[in-house]
């Protein structure tokens, strides 16, 4: 009995030793790689914050309105974008290197998949940013237009424009990534079609008179914000 127990313990020890000698070195190597990547990323971020100005990029971000999409205060700077991109790029590279140290099927597939998907992910991200930019611009225009035309709830109109456009961008990105493309597309068509049908029914049944009056006003060139007779802002 004692002999058997000893053999079991010895077997367990051997197995444990084998596991430790198999996995601990790669774990230590991965940790070292990650630590080095973290140090390099932090150092590079610090350096970029100090030496990179990117004034031309800042100007482009402001002129195009992208700065206000990514940061509503509009204070987003190219320096920050470059520094954070470098930081997370190096960290991601370190993580992938660390994973590849294990040299298993799973880790190899993960790393391989990442490099296959990376360009697609980049393009999908660009599509989403472009969608956000367009929805922001048209959403703001819709709010201002609706307020100027004295329509009810201008902010909701603006929000609706943003949501629809952002939804369209998500559908395009999902299609590009081949990720549940049918689901997103069907949802988009159902939602937009439903909204248009609802709006048409509401306008036709509930507000036909008002719509007709607005069209007639427009045709007759009447000013909706006409001032009292004799009043002249110009």
């Amino acid at each position: 009995m004692g002999e058997m127990l000893r053999k079991v313990l010895e077997g367990a020890g051997h197995r444990l030793q084998s596991q430790v000698t198999t996995y601990l070195p790669p774990i230590l190597a991965a940790a070292v790689i990650l630590a080095v990547a973290f140090a390099a990323a932090t150092a590079l971020r610090w350096l970029i914050y100090r030496i990179f100005k990117g004034l031309a990029i800042d100007r482009f971000l402001r002129r195009s309105g992208v700065a206000y999409v990514l940061d509503p205060s509009g204070r987003l700077r190219a320096t920050r974008i470059a520094a954070e991109t470098a930081y997370w790029g190096i960290l991601t590279g370190g993580a992938l290197n660390g994973i590849s140290v294990f040299d298993t099927d799973l880790t190899s597939r993960t790393v391989q998949s990442f490099f296959v998907l990376f360009p697609k992910l980049l393009l999908a991200a660009a599509i989403l940013v472009a969608g956000a930019w367009l929805s922001h611009y048209l959403g703001r225009s819709a709010v201002v237009w609706a307020a100027g035309e004295a329509l009810p709830a201008p902010r909701r109109i603006g929000a609706l424009v943003r949501v629809v456009l952002m939804f369209a961008a998500v559908v395009v990105a999902a299609d590009h990534l081949d990720f549940a493309r049918g689901v997103f597309l069907a949802a988009f068509i159902i939602v937009c079609g439903g909204m248009i049908l609802t709006a048409s029914l509401a306008a036709g049944i509930g507000a036909a008179g008002e719509v007709r009056r607005l069209f007639e006003q427009s045709r007759n060139g009447e000013e909706r914000d006409a001032e009292p007779v004799g009043w002249n802002h110009l």
Binding site: R62, R63, S64, G65, S141, V144, W145
Partner: peptide, 14 residues
């Protein structure tokens, strides 16, 4: 500052 996307700004001052 928003040369490309600032067309709505003048309307917002009204």
């Amino acid at each position: 500052q928003r040369a490309f996307t600032g067309s709505w700004i003048p309307a917002a001052i009204a």
